[in-house]
């Protein structure tokens, strides 16, 4: 039957196909759908489960969080875990360390985003819109650095910053991270796609190149800048290895390094570690929920990289 349909002229087989499509769901189709939704539900459970459990665990006592068999809801809710995390760790002067870590994270991520947006867009404008000798090779070299593993640069970066006396200062994080290959690449691609007419109009009006960049190009590039800002904030907010190596004293820690420090300090109190983790997770999740559009856009831009 199937072979016969293939030999027959096109319209007949098409009619047969469309009829088959209208016949409604088959038993096989229903089973396939059940399997499909079961798989989706299981995957959702696996992906979200750890976060739900960690959130609930952050309200349990240190004993309950390690009870066997594990409990789901806390037998008694302990919001005071959060107060304990906030206040308990102090420096020699009695100042709370945890709020300081949170502030360090906000400050480092904030400056990182502002500098990246400015310096990457400035360089991208030069690469995409201006003509100067050597621009091609410089851009190629910069994009090629995406291949260099960050961990390889860790030791020399530490030594160079140490020579300038910058280790254990905010500068050691801010300066090397002020510009990045991903941002330059993403914005160069975006700027190239902007039509030239507006710039030409600006040039005729006597605008300088910087004015053109600042007043014409940047406003047009808002979606790309927003995407880069979100991606870079996320990266800086979650960054760990770099800070672990370059910031050595407790009052300099960002939250991620602080959390790793707490893991050593609160060995018997996983509930407190979980509560502390929420201070990192909740802002990240909120930003994601509000700006999820840009995350997807960002990963699509990243796809252009290949």
């Amino acid at each position: 039957m199937a072979t016969e349909a293939r030999v027959q002229p096109m319209p007949a087989s098409a009619v047969e196909q469309s009829q088959r499509g209208q016949r409604g769901p088959t038993i096989g189709g229903i089973i396939l759908n059940i399997i499909r939704y079961a798989l989706l539900a299981l995957m959702t459970l696996i992906l979200l489960g750890p976060f739900i459990l960690a959130f609930l665990g952050s309200f349990k006592t240190g004993a309950e969080v390690l009870a066997w068999p594990p409990t789901f809801l806390p037998s008694q809710w302990h919001p005071d875990n959060y107060a304990q995390v906030w206040n308990q760790m102090t420096d020699q002067n009695g100042n709370s360390l945890f709020p300081r870590w949170l502030l360090n994270s906000v400050f480092l991520a904030g400056t990182h985003v502002v500098l990246q947006l400015f310096l990457c867009s400035l360089a991208a404008y030069a690469f995409a819109r201006l003509h100067f000798p050597g621009q091609k090779i410089v851009l190629t070299l910069i994009v090629a650095t995406l291949m260099i593993p960050g961990v390889v640069l860790l030791i020399p970066k530490y030594l160079i910053l140490n020579k300038f006396g910058l280790v254990n200062t905010y500068w050691s994080i801010i300066i090397p991270g002020a510009v990045g290959a991903t941002g330059i690449f993403l914005l160069t691609q975006f700027f190239r796609a902007i039509p030239k007419d507006l710039e030409e109009a600006a040039a005729i009006d006597g605008a300088s190149l910087f004015t053109t960049y600042w007043r014409v190009i940047l406003p047009l590039a808002r979606p790309a800048l927003a995407t880069l800002a979100i991606l870079e904030f996320q990266g800086a907010w979650n960054s760990f290895q770099n800070e672990l190596v370059l910031l050595n004293t407790q009052e300099m820690f960002p939250l991620t390094v602080g959390l790793s420090f707490l893991k050593g300090a609160y060995t018997g109190n996983i509930n407190l570690i979980l509560a502390a983790s929420m201070f990192n997770t909740v802002p990240a999740v909120l930003i994601f929920i509000f700006f999820s559009r840009y995350f997807v856009q960002g990963s699509t831009y990243a796809g252009v990289k290949g």
């Binding site: 959702t44 750890p50 459990l53 960690a54 760990f240 959390l259 790793s260 997770t281 999820s292």
Partner: peptide, 17 residues
């Protein structure tokens, strides 16, 4: 949206959990 959550969480936090 929900599946993407683990990707936006810090590796530090996921490791601790």
């Amino acid at each position: 949206v929900t599946w993407y959550l683990p990707s936006v969480t810090a590796s530090v936090v996921i490791s601790l959990i």
